[in-house]
C-alpha cells in the first residue's frame, strides 16, 4: 500500500517551526550564564522571596492519537519558586530539582511581566535563542544522518 495522498504533501508541509518563547529559552539554556545574568540584575533590583524554590509534582496529561482519549502518563518532578522584584511578582517553574534555575526564571518572569525593559535581558534571550537553535540544528543533523530509504528487493 502506498500512502498516496499523504505522500503528495511536501516534507516541509509536515514540519511546523515554532519561535522560542522566554520560558523555553530559560528552561533550555545552560545554567551558568543564566545565573550570571540574574546575579547582575540582583544588584539593581530588590527581591523578596514569597516561596523558596522547592520541588513538587506535575501530572503529565496525554492522549491517544486517534480517539483523543485523555489519560495520565505519569508525574514529572518540578521546581517552583515565587518571588517579587521591586514589588512585581514572578513565578518560576522548571522540570527537575533545579532550585537555581527556578529562582532565576521567577526573577526574570517578574521583570518581563512587569514590563521592565532591560537590554541585558533582551541580549541574553537573543544570544541564548541562537545558541539553542544551533544546538538543535546540530542534534537534528545527527538524527537526519540516520534517515533511511528502504527499498524492496525487486527494485534492485
Amino acid at each position: 500500500m502506498r500512502a498516496s495522498s499523504f505522500l503528495n504533501k511536501e516534507v516541509g508541509d509536515c514540519f511546523q517551526k515554532m519561535e522560542y518563547d522566554t520560558d523555553y529559552i530559560l528552561c533550555e539554556c545552560p545554567l551558568e550564564p543564566l545565573k550570571a545574568l540574574v546575579e547582575d540584575l540582583e544588584k539593581v533590583h530588590e527581591v523578596k522571596i514569597a516561596k523558596e524554590p522547592s520541588v513538587c509534582l506535575t501530572m503529565v496529561r496525554a492522549e491517544d492519537s486517534l480517539e483523543k482519549q485523555e489519560f495520565f502518563l505519569g508525574e514529572a518532578l518540578t521546581t517552583e519558586c515565587e518571588l517579587s522584584v521591586d514589588g512585581m511578582s514572578g513565578y518560576g517553574l522548571c522540570l527537575g530539582e533545579d532550585p537555581t534555575r527556578g529562582y532565576c526564571i521567577a526573577f526574570i518572569d517578574a521583570l518581563v511581566i512587569g514590563g521592565v525593559s532591560d537590554e541585558r535581558i533582551d541580549r541574553f534571550l537573543r544570544e541564548q535563542a541562537e545558541a539553542i537553535r544551533e544546538r538543535e540544528t546540530l542534534d537534528f543533523s545527527r538524527t537526519l544522518s540516520t534517515r533511511v530509504d528502504f527499498k524492496l528487493m525487486e527494485e534492485d
Partner: peptide, 18 residues
Amino acid sequence: LQLSDEEAPRSFCKVVDM
C-alpha cells in the same frame, strides 16, 4: 557530520493521520 540545511522541525506528521 554534515550540517542539515533544514532547521530542526517542530512537528512531524503522523502515519496514523494518513
